[in-house]
Design a protein around this nucleic acid. Structure first.
Lengths: 250, 250
DNA sequence: CGCTTAGTTGAGTTCGTTCAACGACTGTGG
DNA sequence: CCACAGTCGTTGAACGAACTCAACTAAGCG
């Protein structure tokens, strides 16, 4: 695997952060922005397919995704893999490892990913000096918990078809509000990723996706999924969608 | 349903909190203890079977479980239910609703439960005045996330037998470190709860539990589960157990 | 050109479901 | 005190969803 990690000195100043322009995120105060600017230690670029964080590691860093897609997963000893969630721009990763010690899941890049790097040790300073940002971090953790609740409901209680529809609707919706689509609603995942998220075999996933395609909801093309009818997928899954409130990021 | 909620003025002062004595929790500083004491607004007692928090509610309160067992769950419109996690003494509940607005899951008492009551509005004061406690709350949220990661792995990728073994080992281990057993390792859940946690039907859950019983790992008795061999259950599930680090609570 | 990765399809098997009936126990009202 | 309903657990039979195995296409890459 020709994967690489490249560390840059700070490239994008937080003042020009591309995420700040999105209507999806809450505004920073002048003061908060300054603090986060100092909190940020640099940037990291990783190739598609590279592992960003690995289970068992004691990472000294926290990251916020600037651009690109990735996923969090866990594996059993015999290799069975479960994808837990996907990471997209604005997501904070490595928090579990930072606050509790050891990482208990891995994170892999689906596309080239660029990350803001923060240091574990300065997190306590953030809590001491900036209660509003500390609260934001809790908010972010609570959001992840809520997403996991929904995934668990899905894997535990929805049929294969509903599950697939839910997952694709979820990814579509997240990417949409982040304005990651330029014209074409394309999700850069393989059927193996879908299978490992839904808790199904690849073969059955393939057959299930074909049913969604027959209904005109999606089209599978070029190693990924074109979403043709996000609304229809949500309806099929019985999913209300994520709440529309502004969310914080660091 | 003859369920009731009773609000008491503060009964147990935080200085005498029964949880503080457990070797499983980290120590409070004198100052933290004082602050939490003021943060606590009263106590609430709920009957077995009562709903503590309900999906869709905008609760003005946060709770810490003092005694008793409960569970968090979500349902689909047609009634399919997924249990997300169990709550036991020391667990903070209602955080999702408090930081993000609306509750998106419900919580029900499995046994009579007593709760410490905190007010939503004073949470920000806690963040402003006591960074170490704010950090603890993030820690608690990260822990819940980690547990959900493991449940998702289990429901998605383990066989029915492994799943059941994992769940019972998990409940056993949590209750054990909290010293909830007096002699007998008894879990107060019905097979329906197990089924709704594992994402299985009751019938198949019954047959699966019988297999665990045949192996001498558990015994089903008096509407609950006697754990005969927690170690054996963990081994069967391929579960390493929770980390032994001290955890905070509020 | 061969090698690898991703996706497709069919056949047969296994795991888990639904349906249905029944026993044990608990609580309630007549 | 007994009858009755309700909850919980158990079991068998038949069915269906999802799995494994296997063979095969198509595309991308050295």
């Amino acid at each position: 695997m020709a994967t690489a990690k490249t560390v840059h000195a700070m490239k994008t100043p937080c003042e020009d952060c591309p995420l700040r322009g999105l209507p999806h995120f809450r505004e920073f105060s002048r003061e908060e922005l300054e603090f986060v600017s100092r909190f940020k230690k640099g940037e990291l670029a990783v190739d598609a397919g590279a592992t960003i964080l690995v289970e068992g590691a004691h990472s000294a860093h926290l990251f916020t995704v600037l651009t690109g897609w990735g996923f969090r997963y866990k594996t059993l000893e015999d290799g069975r893999r479960q994808i837990l969630n996907y990471v997209m721009p604005g997501d904070l990763i490595g928090l579990q490892g930072t606050v509790m010690g050891e990482m208990q899941h891995s994170i892999e890049a689906l596309s080239p990913v660029s990350l803001c790097v923060f240091e574990r040790d300065s997190l306590m300073t953030l809590y001491n000096r900036h209660a509003s940002l500390a609260f934001d971090i809790t908010w972010i953790a609570a959001r992840e918990e809520r997403i996991l609740d929904e995934h668990l409901l899905s894997v535990g209680r929805r049929s294969a078809l509903e599950r697939a529809a839910y997952l694709i609707a979820y990814l579509y919706e997240r990417a949409r509000v982040l304005k990651l689509f330029n014209g074409r609603s394309f999700l850069p995942v393989t059927q193996q990723h879908i299978a490992d998220t839904l808790g199904l075999s690849i073969v059955h996933t393939n057959k299930t996706l074909k049913k969604l395609a027959e209904r005109g909801l999606i089209r599978w093309q070029e190693r990924g999924c074109d979403v043709l009818d996000g609304e229809g997928l949500s309806t099929l899954a019985g999913w209300e969608g994520q709440d529309g409130n502004l969310r914080p990021f660091i």
